[in-house]
Simulated scan of single mutants.
Amino acid sequence: MTSDLLQRVAPVAARPRLVPAVGVLAAVLVLAAGASLLVGSRPLPVSDVWNSLRGNGEPAVDAVVRGLRVPRTVLAVVVGAALGLAGALTQALTRNPLADPGLVGVNAGASLGVVVAMAYLGVRSPAGYVWCGVLGAVVVGAVVLGLTSRVRSLEPVTTLVLTGSVVSALLGAATTVVLLLHEDSLRSFQFWSAGTLAARDLGVLTGIAPVLVLGVLAAAVTAPALSSLELGDDLAAALGRRVRRDRAVGLAAVVLLAAAATAAAGTLGFLGLLAPHLARFLAAARPVATLALSALTGAVLLTVADVAGRVLLSSSELPVGIVLAVLGAPVFVALARRLDR
């Protein structure tokens, strides 16, 4: 009986909104992806882009469309979906609506991995340093989760936030030291750390694909437990959930998803925070549906922000990380003020 009651937690009246929300987001994503193929430093006619996609384009057009814009668009969709899913998991597992995947230290770990690759291995191409970024983020995420599991005097969520903050500060200092000793790597690192999808090819996606797959699988394993975990650890345990295991698997999914996304595109702040809130605004739904909707929302937000970064300035292009920061900062303040009431 209790299980049946829990299945009815989501508002019945809000469930019909899920299908229209998915339809609207899918349509916006298709339009944004189309704009991503058309818009840039060299605007292209629709006919030229279509011919290039079919394999009948001119070499110069193919170099732009298939060589640059198609990989960039695919990466925007994949990275945005990964961060949206990671953000929804983070907020559900920590029961904190202002939580972000950066809590587990993956941003700092990826930054250190990338700067080490640039400074000591001489790697400058995104397809080369993405491996080091993924490795650094995953290792640091594992360390944070391992340290969190050993501390029993505080609540797991509090321990996670404190441990992630301390480790991130330590690794941030280490990254700064490496950059001071190797100033030749500074410019390349700044370009990556600003958050960008430019100059990426499909080799970057190939590099993060195994980590993304593992992250999605871990998220799928965790999803059935979220309804119980949202009720609190004590009640979830009373309902038969193995709370520590469920949270550990869920946070591992966050680490893997955020690690892959950050290594590929740099630091993209606020996306993991905004996507779940927009998903819940469009359609209040059960946690599993919210995860899927957050992934779709993240893909839309990143693709739209990337296109906006190309057209906001007439003389140059804004990195997508800066666009997200400009949009996300005031929304974060508004959310914090609303939750404080």
Rank of each mutant, 00 (worst) to 15 (best):
A261Y: 15
G240I: 07
R286P: 07
A117W: 10
L180P: 09
L145T: 07
P45Y: 14
R280C: 02
V49E: 06
A194Q: 06
T158M: 11
R338A: 15
V288D: 03
A27D: 06
V211L: 13
V19K: 13
G109S: 06
L179N: 11
V178C: 07
A259I: 14
P11F: 14
T159W: 09
V130E: 00
A174Y: 01
A76V: 11
R54Y: 06
V134G: 05
A275K: 04
V116T: 14
I322W: 01
R66K: 05
R241D: 06
A81Y: 12
V46T: 09
P276N: 07
G133C: 01
G266N: 02
L38A: 10
D234H: 06
P276Y: 00
P97I: 13
V255C: 03
S168I: 00
A336W: 04
V104W: 03
L103C: 06
V28D: 05
G141Y: 04
V143S: 01
A258I: 14
D246C: 09
L197E: 04
L301K: 09
T267G: 01
A292G: 09
G203F: 00
D62M: 09
L25Y: 13
Y120I: 12
G133E: 01
L103Q: 07
L235R: 13
G207W: 01
W50P: 10
T175S: 11
V46K: 11
L239W: 00
L162I: 12
G207H: 01
V30L: 14
V134N: 04
N51F: 07
D100P: 11
L226G: 01
V320L: 03
V151M: 09
L135Y: 02
V288K: 00
Y120V: 10
R17L: 13
D246P: 10
L98E: 13
L145M: 01
T290M: 10
L197D: 08
S165A: 10
A329I: 12
G172C: 01
L226N: 02
V304P: 06
V243C: 05
